[in-house]
Amino acid sequence: MTTEPTTGEATETYRRRIAEIWSAALGTPVTDADHHFFAGGGDSFQAALATATTRREWGLEITVQLLIDHPVLADFSERVARFVDER
């Protein structure tokens, strides 16, 4: 019997993948849900790269402003999960 993941489990799946995307953009491992993209060394170029990859990954219409407004991994991941659910 297959069950649908709970909201928390689904968000965790997004968080893990976005952590990989951020790690690639930043050139350093991102493992903590409280990781702040810009405090962790991210700049505007890396933000554009991470946002573009996220956009392609899930076919979303998001901009860098989403990352600027929600620079903490857990928060950004939750927003992405919501956008995917709303499609």
Rank of each mutant, 00 (worst) to 15 (best):
L26H: 01
G8Q: 13
W58E: 08
E9M: 10
E4K: 12
A52L: 14
A52W: 06
L26G: 01
E4T: 15
T28V: 12
D43P: 02
P5M: 15
D85L: 14
S44C: 07
V80I: 13
F45N: 12
R82P: 00
E86A: 14
S23A: 08
R55G: 04
L67I: 12
A74G: 07
F38A: 01
I21V: 11
L66P: 00
R16Q: 14
T54K: 01
V30F: 01
W58Q: 06
R79N: 06
I62E: 04
A52E: 12
A25D: 02
D85Y: 08
A33H: 03
L49R: 09
T11S: 12
F76E: 01
S77H: 02
D85P: 02
T28R: 11
T51H: 04
T53R: 13
E61D: 15
R15M: 13
G59P: 05
Y14N: 07
T31H: 06
L60D: 05
E4I: 15
T2P: 08
E9I: 07
Q46L: 10
R17L: 13
A33I: 06
A48G: 05
A39N: 10
T53E: 11
S23T: 09
A10H: 14
F83Y: 15
A74Q: 07
T13P: 02
T3L: 15
Y14S: 04
G27D: 10
T54C: 10
E78P: 00
A48N: 04
A24F: 05
Q46S: 12
P71I: 03
P71F: 04
T53H: 08
G40H: 02
P5S: 15
G59L: 13
F37V: 04
E20M: 12
R16N: 12
F76P: 00
I68E: 09
E9R: 06
A10K: 14
G40F: 02
A81M: 09
T54Y: 05
R87W: 08
